[in-house]
Design a protein around this nucleic acid. Structure first.
Lengths: 229, 229
DNA sequence: CGACCATTTGATATGGATCAAGCGATGTGG
DNA sequence: CCACATCGCTTGATCCATATCAAATGGTCG
C-alpha cells in the first residue's frame, strides 16, 4: 500500500517521506490522535495511495491536496465514493482489506498511521476507540446522504455537488474545484458531457458562473438549494 | 420513536410489548450484547419504527420479519437504504438523530435497547465498544457496495439484488422476497414497471423463474453473477 | 362473488448517453 | 516567440434505456 505502483495514466512516481509537520489548520474532523502518531508522506497528482483489496494496514489523514476513493467494475466503469479534503481521514476499515481504492487527485501531503498501533492504543484508551467509531459513523452518514443521488436528476445532482463542495471549502462565494469533470461525473453517476451541459444550464439560470473551468461562483445559493430538492 | 404514529397507508396500529424471548437462530451478526439487554417488541406490517431526525435513543435488532430504512425527498421520491432481516442490527448512529426512517415491511419482532445503557456499557467494556464499531463499519461497507448501483443497468441491478437476497436468506435455490415490487424499485433506483419487465427478461433468459410473485427461483446463478457485472 | 390492490403488460415520451466535432488552454520543440 | 501537438472541456446531433402513462390481469380478502 505504501509502495508505489503505476498510476492511471501510466506515469510512475515514488512518494517521498517527509519530516513530521506541525499540525495545520485543516477544515474537517479533529482526529487529533492520528496527526500525532503519523508520518507525513507526499504523493504526486494521480499517484495510487492504495488499491481495493490490498491489506488495510494504514490509516490516512489529508494534510493538503485532494484524494479520491473509488471502485471500478470489470469493464472499467468507475464509481467515485468520496473526495477527501484537508483534515479528512480515510482508509478506515475494520476488515483486513480496503473496500475502495485511493488516489491523489492533486499533489498531496498525507499523514499515515499504522493501523496496528492505533488499534493497540484504542484497546487501552476508549476515548480513542470512540473517536474511531465516530469517524466511521460520520462516513456512513455521508455515504447514505450521497446515495440519494440515485433518485435525483442531473440538475439536482450537480447543484447538490456544488453546495457540498462550497461548504467543505469555505472560500466565500466561489468554489475552487480540485477535480476534473471526469471525476465529478464518476462521483455523480453522469457523463462529462452531461456535467458540462448541466453547468451551463445552471449558468444560464443565473444560479452560478463558471469563472474558470475549475472555478465556480455561486451566484444564487437558494436557487441551488431549491434544485438540490 | 417507540410511540406509534400513522403508517404510510393511513392505518394506525400500536406495537405491543412482548416478554423477553430466548436468543433465536438469526442469520446475520452475532451482536450478543444487544439481545441480552433489550426488550422485545412487535410491530405490525407497515408500522413506523422511527422517523428521520427523531432522537436516536434506541438501537434495534431484528428477531423476525423484515425492516426497511429509507429517506424521502420533499416531493415524495423515496430511496430505500437497506432491508434488515432477522439477526441484523439497525438504528446505529453516533449523532443524536436518526439519519433515515425505519418501517416494518412484514410483522416484526424486534429487540430494542436503550442507547444510553449501551454507551455506558461500551465506556467500561471495550469489547462492546469494538462490537459497536464493527457493526458500523460493516454497514458502511454494505452501503458503499450498494452505491455501485449508480453505474449499473437495470438488468445488473436486479440480478445483483436477487443474488444479495439469496445469500442473506439461505433457502436453497429459491428466494422468498418479503418486500413489494415498489420496495425493490425504491431500493434499486428503478420503477416498478422496470423491475417487473427486468424479472421477465431474466426469466426469458432462463436465469430465474418467478414461481409466485414473491418467490423467485434462481435457475442459473453464474448467469446472474455475470450480469451483476 | 365482488372489490381492491399489487403486479404485469403495452404504447409512447424523454433525459441522459453516445458519437463526433470543435475549441481553448497549456506545454514543447524549433 | 511562434507553430504545433495535446489534453480537458464544450457543443452539437442522434440514439436508446428507462420513465411515464394507460390498461389489463390476477391474487387476496371481506
Amino acid at each position: 500500500m505504501l509502495t508505489q505502483t503505476a498510476t492511471r495514466d501510466g506515469s510512475f512516481k515514488q512518494p517521498t517521506i517527509q519530516p513530521r509537520r506541525a499540525p495545520h489548520a485543516g477544515n474537517a474532523v479533529q482526529a487529533g490522535t492520528i496527526e500525532l502518531m503519523g508520518a507525513c508522506m507526499s504523493f504526486p497528482a494521480n499517484a495510487e495511495i492504495y488499491g481495493e483489496n490490498e491489506p488495510a494496514d494504514y490509516l490516512y489523514k489529508v494534510i493538503s491536496g485532494t484524494v479520491r476513493t473509488y471502485k471500478v467494475l470489470v469493464d472499467g466503469r468507475r464509481q467515485i465514493g468520496a473526495f477527501h479534503l484537508p483534515g479528512d481521514v480515510f482508509g478506515l476499515e475494520t476488515g483486513d482489506e480496503h473496500a475502495l481504492s485511493a488516489e491523489a487527485i492533486t499533489d498531496c501531503k498525507i499523514t499515515v498511521i499504522k493501523r496496528s498501533a492505533l488499534m493497540a492504543l484504542a484497546a487501552r484508551d476508549n476515548e480513542v476507540a470512540r473517536e474511531m467509531w465516530a469517524l466511521t459513523a460520520r462516513e456512513l452518514q455521508r455515504v447514505q446522504e450521497h446515495s440519494l443521488v440515485l433518485i435525483k436528476s442531473a440538475e439536482e445532482r450537480v447543484a447538490g455537488f456544488l453546495l457540498e463542495m462550497a461548504e467543505r471549502v469555505p472560500a466565500g462565494g466561489a468554489v475552487e474545484l480540485p477535480m476534473s469533470r471526469q471525476d465529478i461525473a464518476d462521483y455523480l453517476g453522469l457523463t462529462i458531457e452531461t456535467v458540462s451541459r448541466t453547468l451551463k444550464l445552471l449558468e444560464d439560470a443565473a444560479a452560478i458562473e463558471v469563472a474558470k473551468r475549475r472555478r465556480i461562483l455561486l451566484r444564487n445559493r437558494s436557487a441551488l438549494r431549491r434544485l438540490n430538492s
